[in-house]
Design a protein around this nucleic acid. Sequence first.
DNA 1: GACAAGCAGATTGTCGACAATCTAGCAAGA
DNA 2: TCTTGCTAGATTGTCGACAATCTGCTTGTC
Lengths: 245, 245
Amino acid sequence: MGKADFSPIADTTRRAEIVALLRRAILTGQLEPGQKLNELRIAEQMRVSRAPLREAMRELVQEGILTSIPYAGTFVIDVTAKDIDDAYSLNKVLDEFAIERTWPLRDQRFFNELDRRHEAVKQATRNLDTTRQIETALQLHGLIHEWADNSVLLETWQRLTSRLQMYFALHQRARDEPVPAEDAHEIYVQLLKGADMRAAQRHAREHIELDFEELLGYARSLEQRASKGAKADRAGLTQNRPEGG
Amino acid sequence: MGKADFSPIADTTRRAEIVALLRRAILTGQLEPGQKLNELRIAEQMRVSRAPLREAMRELVQEGILTSIPYAGTFVIDVTAKDIDDAYSLNKVLDEFAIERTWPLRDQRFFNELDRRHEAVKQATRNLDTTRQIETALQLHGLIHEWADNSVLLETWQRLTSRLQMYFALHQRARDEPVPAEDAHEIYVQLLKGADMRAAQRHAREHIELDFEELLGYARSLEQRASKGAKADRAGLTQNRPEGG
DNA sequence: GACAAGCAGATTGTCGACAATCTAGCAAGA
DNA sequence: TCTTGCTAGATTGTCGACAATCTGCTTGTC
């Protein structure tokens, strides 16, 4: 019996590709919070009709990174300090749960994967590739959720991740300098390999608390900007591009 | 200054109505797990074109109660014992978190709403309206999540609720006799009004554990049925209706 | 009889066009 | 000057038709 281990074939619908493209644009901050998505323009740019584009947008609305108002348009979600606060406090709870469930399931494959992802973060950090750094850090963080063997937890965390990634990306863009944080995850990884589950949970909670403070500061600054007429600003960003040839 | 308190106007797109209709059909068990949704047939029945229907289906896929395979179709999710287990164990964690956050925010309005929802459950129980009973019980249960003032938590719980409601509905249909459980929630409500948060959390966890055992038994029976050629069964249910008009 | 190739039929994915709705902007009137 | 009603333009929502893909059956061959 020849075992082969084929990976599933790629989704070959335009819709799926559009979803991936749009998600990436939003999560990397190419599309800014509050910005309106003009269906006609995007469809033309992607060389696609509006049908699959609209379906893709519905998916992202349910994913929580777009919001739709009938007959008005679909917009990238606004980021408020409270949103970030909410996401983080829930994330803490999920992390504790994930660690608890993953704990008895840790094996060599887990440790290998942990190291692999940690290495990816370190490499992105060395390369000063901030976007990739965020991505890999979240993937490292996500391992406990993948390993916990709870599909609902995993789904929930993936939804949260979308937002977290968006928040981080915005944060990074705002202060456009690479974050050092060389081995911010060293302790985390070591604890996950160790024998003290409580310690790992505690660290996860406190570690998160740290990054969170930075993000919150950024979110608050955003809101101050917003209250001083960022509305006009946003409209401008969306509309002032009358198809440049 | 005349204050009026208008509630937001209803969503008046076909899409939104289709979503509501489909969701209801799935959550009440009219559409069975694994069943395929034929776009043409449903669109004809609803007197709607396929475009808004497909958009609605994309939303429900992201909501987690439908699943889509490109060029094959969109199906009601299958229910496995593990799914129910996963959903419940996460729900416990969320409940504890919700109670913790709601606790300091409880006020007279909260207590009134609690009583109102409890009353709704009792009435549905008296009327032997099982569908409504499930609905109201989940709404009662949802109050702590709404009151916790955490939008991400609320969203997460609502997603979970969809599945829980589906599971319960299936369970009820399976043993088609009304569940008594007159004031199964009396203690829960009293504890939420009391002063001992830990006790409320503990009860929530244990209370859930009870219902859960019943559901798990049902799910396991489902899986036994499934392993004996329910596949053909399902296909039959979907296909054997060559538009009887 | 077993098996591969190929052909309908049905179903999903995508497209372009039309209808419904919203949003300035302007004109008329108090 | 402010408000109200109207109009034109743009944008979203919906429709019907076509293209791509899958499935099951038939056919032909060994």
